[in-house]
Design a binder for these strands. Sequence first.
RNA 1: GCUGCUGUAGCUCAGGGGUAGAGCACUUCCUUGGUAAGGAAGAGGUCAUGGGUUCAAAUCCCAUCAGCAGCUCCA
Length: 646
Amino acid sequence: MSQSIQITLPDGSKREHPKAGTGLDLAMSIGKGLAKSAVAIKVDGEIQSLQVPLEEDAAVEIVTRNTPEGLEVIRHSAAHVMADAFKRIRPDCKLWKGPPVDDPRYGFYYDIDFGEKPIGKTDLPEVEKLMAEIIAADHPFEYEELPRDEAIELMRSHGEDYKLDTIDKIPAGETISFFRSGDFVDLCKGPHVPRTGKIGKGTAVLGIAGAYMGDDANNRMLTRVYGHAFSDRKAMEGHRKFLEEAAKRDHRRLGKDLDLFSTMGELGGGLVLWHPKGGFVRHKVEEYWRNEHLKNGYDIVYSPHVARGDLWSTSGHLDFYADSMFTGLDVDGVDYHLKPMNCPFHILMYKNKRRSYRDLPFRWAELGTVYRYESPGTLHGLLRVRGFTQDDAHLFLRPDQLDAEVERCLKFVLHVLRAFDFTEFHLMLSTRPEKYVGEIADWEKSEVALEQALKTLNLEYTVDPGGGAFYGPKIDVNIKDSLGRFWQCSTVQVDFTQPDRFDLSYIDRDGGRTRPVMIHRALLGSLERFFGVLIEHFAGAFPVWLAPVQAVLLAVGERHGERCEEAAKELRERGFRVQADTSAEKIGQKIRQHLWQEKVPMICVVGDQEIESAGFSVRHRKDGDLGSLSLDQLADLLDRLTQERR
RNA sequence: GCUGCUGUAGCUCAGGGGUAGAGCACUUCCUUGGUAAGGAAGAGGUCAUGGGUUCAAAUCCCAUCAGCAGCUCCA
């Protein structure tokens, strides 16, 4: 006697479904096309495998392959198949975990212990091929629940020691489930696609690296193999293009090719040499930064690179931050340390004289070069270095000014970032961490101030509970680049602690002493990191306002050289960055070199025609042929593009 | 710091127990050419560093340094 249950579909319609029939049966009964693209099912909002029987009345939704959730299921199943493939080439490897991940580059990974004989990059193509075979074989993914003792027995018989630990951690009473496909079986909650064939042809094995078991540095290190899976082969090819494009934009690559900067072993890890062209871009960034700060109520200050130990004790850095500091300079028998932050200096400036409530707020900004010890393995091009210049500012406020200043700060941050062609942001509010200093009431007040500013400015944000700094909550701004990748640059942090530690005060309206509040604020983050992000964002092709060379005048033949040199000189005198190429190369070669290899925004050809018409044939790297322009017109164009920051 | 990989010319890389190779870039010469690579010649390397094995090491082994992919970390 078969019973039936009642299923409610997303459109509100209801239908009878045999009890213990699977989600796949349901999809089939709705439509063949739907069944074909179905990869999972949501039952009362919870995603699960199609092959799990439906036992009770429920609201369900079929999850199809081209949705974010559908892709997650496909990726999870692909990870499973990858583990199957590794088991075939290395039967004694031990599996740990293989989840789907949300990363622009990878869709899933599997952590595997290969014991004494690690696998290498060269093994990956074989694994990819085996995966394709397993997928083509279209094994059903069979869902299976086992009692604890049988589950343990099963994993023990497969030699999966790590899975035994996992079973151990599953609370009593919770189901222990497995998925089988062919001869392969894995402890897994799922969900998985109904058959390996459903994974499709959009899979790839992409990389290999070490990873601590459970991402915990106390544990042993396993091999993490990264892969990706898409709904079809074409989407995977698109992803490979994205990876190629990202590699082309790699700021370390472009830094070399365009002669922007270098970081060499001889110098010391994590230290940067800014070459003339990179230095010029930095100069323009700094120039803009200074002008905007002066226009927006900031004062510019400077502080030294070192200070005596006492200062860093008072600030708490030696307690909280010593591991990241370069310490132990001996000056006349007194300990000095390199500065890892600028705040204590600005605080000393504040303390330098008595302050009145009428003076506040102070907004003090500095391009301050700091040094922090970063572990060797974490250094990365310009993005993670040991010596860098923060575009730092510290605001000293009366408590009643906090809300308005936070809002003002955020507005300013976005204004400046937009000038650099960033239009999309992701903001994150980080609240009190477990290890914190100060009063809870102050924390709450600051968190409210930050959140209120986000709301007033109508900005979307997410909350990272416990992600704040030890001295206060913060808002981080991530910027989205032209490839859709996010980079963390700006940060706005409220601080009640430092004013306390340094016993800061101002004379209030009543003649008493009141403690000011501080805001720490970095806007570009560090000039090094921001430059790295800019390079990747523009793929090395800086807009006219930032480009170290804005235009190159190209002589068609030898007799045009003089005109080129003269015009270039004239334009340089008018403040433009213009060079002349009078070499004996052909015009095609010169265009290739300047426009495409050196990524100069525009070139101007000078030949017989141009000399006759007193013009220049101008070609913009992005906008193409701009026709013939006079020298004045060319200067106007450069001016306009500079004004428009293009 | 951890796991794995890598280090050869300015750059990209090939080679590999017997005195070092290519392409691009560079220098010189020829070519005066009209919108993404004209031709020729030349110069350029302590094969990361230190030690070991060997008749012989750039090549094999060990260590160190640096870089790469991640993981941990990132006030």
